[in-house]
Write a protein that binds this DNA or RNA. Structure first.
Length: 849
RNA sequence: GCGGACGUGGCGAAAUCGGUAGACGCAGCAGACUUAAAAUCUGCCGGCCUAGUGUCAUGCGGGUUCAAGUCCCGCCGUCCGCACCA
């Protein structure tokens, strides 16, 4: 092949992508003697086009996958589509297209875009969750979960749009109104399917402790979400003998500080009393109105309604506490009722001060032990119990234990654990999702669809021009025979939450037999995923649900592992500055896209009228701010390798990456610079060695490898730049020629097309494999990783005063003597003897005068 | 309100264990090559001054240490998550 003076990225991209496909380069080898590496990026939703965030995510995963191949791993690196969900139905309603057609078209075009990036993906494993082959197996797993008692049906509220006759997701409710119809949203009670994730609350919490290679931030977010609280649950008796209600507290130690009891406006007792108390009914209605408005929550004013009822204090029946209905008690946490201890809870104190209720001190951290508590700041710190009868003098923990044991002994309460985590409601009253495989029969009740009748396939002939769930309205689909009695019955018309689809796809990538969800033996080989990469927006729900499914399948004996993702990495966003002009009072600014703009050193102008525009902050690329850059346009202009290189450069991968035209141009120039260097693999000069360059080369081999392994791509990029600089500056030698050759392999994971092109242009004897995709990562020579001379800093009183170059590994006395012999140091010391000399071998000498 | 992360040149950032702060890139400046431009190459590129192997500098103020961007305490700011969780 004749070597072109410039690297033709477009032709090369297509050529090597075809070559990899022809050679089936990225299929797993399934050779047992190689260690496995399962590299997975979160699969995309097929929204239409890929965006720069995808490019960054998949570039990172790809570098790691290619590096693992080069270092002798059997790599599983698959791609698929999270293909069910609401946008497809929205498109159907807006554009009159079919959700399935819209989704499949999007997949086709996005697949094409991803392939242009040259990703080392085993495309034979591609899957889409909207494919019956996939969701049919999901239905089978759902039936298994049902059989294992992990699926239940419960009544639950949904947001109901009375105009569109549809259920709305929380994010579709804006200021209490449906986003499309603008109608006031109602709460409607429906019978829905739930997965019992709360059965695993403790396991999911404990399991976080073992996830060492997950970001602390994500573990903390999951911990808070699961929200374990331990405390006491007990019953209040109403004065007068009527049945009371249960309360939960995490502070049973403060029980003698109780001055009122409070129940939620949604508490059944409050609702019952409201039936013959119009004022209470009005108060409850008022609380519910406020609940929807975000600003009201911000201000957080405590409101209450005195029911006139009183309850007995459990440890002192003579003491009666008033019962209030209170807006800050939530029905869906704990028991929906509390006792108020204003001295030691800020919310209770705010409330008590407003309604002039008594405030009793029961915890003291100083000499101040007065029963009457003053001030507007509750004391929530440590201390000893006071004014609390048999608890006096105990620590908080001792008092908690004493109360719990007394309550349990006397039978009026018990120690309990309360979780913030709720069971996972998976019913969606929508068409474009996995049909829930159940049948409702008048005589037999709710019956699972027999497995041999799976998949329950979505009907294609659906109509989105009328409102409501198309499955429910479909003329024939839902009418079936009961599998149990053979009588008339109807199908469940709810579909599964799309988070179910993404809770097990990593298993199906590893193994996808046609007759069952996966083959346990194959799953055993590949799972867990060694490195999972995706956006932090999935820190809670997706990652928690996937962990739950893995544990559930483990409990059912279907898989060996309990955690699906051994190592998790959450990457930052791609950002861009914004360009806008003010449109005057009360109007939003007018935004411009980057291609409408001419950027100069100190500002930006609109190309069309050459007048200035305002350059705004660097923020996440979004359509509304128009600060988006289309990956296809970048690939057309610069090719895949420049785009990949820029994505990996400069910013640490967990941080946001500011996209800039100058940045991608810099990447492009570097691609060309490397191309020129790669032409020098035979230029050996006089054939001599260059020891200094050899060191730099081998340090780079080791350093770049370490950085890639740790996902420190920006550091790997910097080291490659530095090496390229060193090679360019070096005189031709055998070492330099070898460095040029080795550099091709060092950049191969990041710039695979350039590397293949350079590899193919090498003389045959220099190529050890046909494709560089099959080449091995170079080995660093340990002897060359350390320098034999070191520069040692000489400090006086911590300030740098001189440096000296010495042989590596000299003992402290020699180094100290050398430092003190330096003329500059002698001059500064002026003949005085230093008080102290600290020597850090091979690093520095610090002289304390 | 609670929890967390972060704060280093004009910009993105390095500094792996407390040991020479600013590697590498972008932008900029000066020069070479060129009829010219692009490309390419060379050099410079935190502040201050008395111009030195000077001095100050890692958000601000303290502390520990021979030595602090790094550890500790207190502020300020930015971003993220959760939010009346009993």
């Amino acid at each position: 092949m004749t070597r072109e003076p410039r690297f033709g990225a477009l032709a090369a991209d297509a050529r090597w992508q075809a070559a990899w496909e022809a050679a089936n380069s990225f299929a797993t080898t399934d050779t047992a003697d190689k260690p496995k590496a399962y590299i997975l990026e979160m699969f995309p939703y097929p929204s239409g086009r890929i965006h720069m965030g995808h490019v960054r995510n998949y570039a990172m995963g790809d570098v790691l996958a290619r590096f693992k191949r080069m270092t002798g791993h059997d790599v599983l690196h698959p791609m698929g589509w999270d293909a069910f969900g609401m946008p497809a139905e929205n498109a159907a309603m807006e554009k009159g297209v079919h959700p399935g057609g819209w989704t499949r078209d999007n997949i086709a075009s996005m697949r094409g875009q991803l392939k242009r990036l040259g990703l080392a993906i085993d495309w034979s494993r591609e899957l889409a969750t909207c494919d019956p082959d996939y969701y049919g197996q999901e239905q089978a797993l759902f039936l298994d979960l049902f059989a294992a008692g992990l699926v239940t049906r419960k009544e639950s509220y949904v947001n109901w749009d009375p105009v569109d006759m549809t259920v709305l997701a929380n994010e579709q409710v804006i200021d209490g109104r449906g986003w499309r119809s603008g109608a006031l949203v109602e709460k409607k009670k429906l019978s829905q399917w739930f997965l019992k994730i709360t059965d695993f609350a403790d396991d999911l919490l404990e399991g976080l402790g073992g996830l060492d290679s997950w970001p602390d931030k994500v573990r903390l977010m999951q911990e808070n979400w699961i929200g374990k609280s331990q405390g006491l649950e007990f019953s209040f008796k109403l004065v007068g003998g009527a049945a009371g209600f249960d309360v939960f507290t995490t502070r049973p130690d403060t029980l003698f500080g109780a001055s009122f009891a409070a129940i939620s406006p949604d508490h059944p007792m409050a609702e019952r009393m409201a039936q013959d108390a119009p004022e209470l009914a009005e108060f409850i209605a008022e609380c519910r109105r406020q609940g929807t408005s975000a600003e009201q929550l911000e201000t957080g004013e405590k409101l209450g309604f005195d029911t006139g009822l009183t309850v007995e204090h459990p440890l002192d029946p003579a003491l009666h506490l008033p019962v209030w209905v209170v807006n800050y008690v939530l029905m869906d946490y704990g028991t929906g009722a509390i006792f108020g201890c204003p001295a030691h809870d800020q919310r209770d104190l705010d409330f008590a001060r407003k309604y002039e209720l008594p405030v009793y001190r029961v915890i003291a951290d100083s000499d101040e032990t007065a029963h009457h508590f003053t001030g507007d700041e509750a004391y929530t710190g440590p201390g000893k119990l006071v004014n609390s009868h048999f608890l006096d003098g105990m620590t908080i923990d001792e008092a908690k234990a004493a109360i719990v044991s007394r309550a349990e002994h006397e039978g009026w309460g018990k120690g309990t654990t309360v979780w913030r985590l709720r069971d996972w409601g998976v019913s969606r009253q929508r068409y474009w999702g996995t049909p829930i495989p159940f049948i409702h029969c008048h005589s037999c009740g709710t019956v699972p669809v027999p497995k041999d009748q799976l998949p329950v396939v979505l009907p294609e002939d659906v109509d989105f021009s009328i409102s409501g769930n198309p499955l429910d309205r479909h003329p024939t689909w839902k009418h079936v025979r009961c599998p149990s009695c053979g009588g008339d019955a109807v199908r469940e018309t709810d579909t599964l939450d799309t988070f179910v689809d993404s809770s097990w796809y990593f298993l199906r990538f590893a193994s996808s037999p046609s007759d069952r969800p996966f083959d346990p033996d194959v799953v055993r080989r590949w799972l867990p995923v060694d490195q999972y990469i995706g956006g932090v927006e999935h820190a809670i729900l997706h990652l928690l649900y996937a962990r739950f499914w893995t544990r559930a399948l483990h409990k059912m004996g279907m898989i060996d592992i309990v955690e699906p993702f051994a190592s998790l990495f959450t990457q930052g966003m791609v950002t861009h500055e914004t360009y806008s002009r003010e449109q005057g009072e009360g109007l939003p600014p007018l935004y411009f896209t980057p291609d409408e703009i001419t950027r100069t050193a100190d500002g930006a102008t609109l190309t069309a009228d050459a007048a200035a525009v305002q350059v705004g902050r660097v923020i996440k690329m979004s359509k509304s701010k128009k600060n988006v850059v289309d990956p296809d346009a970048i690939l057309d202009q610069y090719g895949a390798d420049a785009a990949r290189w820029f994505m990996l450069s400069d910013s640490p991968p967990e941080r946001d990456l500011p996209w800039s035209e100058a940045g991608i141009e810099g990447a492009w120039r570097f691609v060309q610079r490397l191309w020129r260097l790669f032409g020098d693999t035979e230029n050996i000069g006089d054939g001599g060695e260059d020891k200094a360059l050899a060191r730099k080369l081998h340090q780079a081999i080791a350093g770049v490898g370490t950085d890639i392994e740790a996902l420190g791509f920006n550091k790997a990029v910097a080291k490659i730049h530095a090496l390229a600089n060193d090679i360019e500056k070096a005189k031709p030698s055998a070492t330099r020629a070898e460095a040029c050759l080795t550099l091709i392999r060092l950049v191969a994971p990041m710039m695979p097309h350039l590397a293949e092109e350079a590899w193919a242009a090498l003389p045959a004897q220099q190529r050890v494999t046909t494709l560089i995709a099959d080449a091995a990562w170079p080995t660093a020579d340990p002897a060359l990783l350390v320098d034999d001379e070191v520069t040692i800093a000489i400090q006086m009183a911590g300030k740098l005063r001189d440096t000296m170059t010495l042989a590596k590994g000299l003992d402290k006395d020699t180094v100290e003597a050398a430092a003190l012999a330096r003329p500059r140091i002698a001059e500064l010391l002026g003949g005085a003897t230093p008080k102290k000399v600290i020597v850090v071998p091979d690093r520095l000498v610090n002289i304390v005068p």
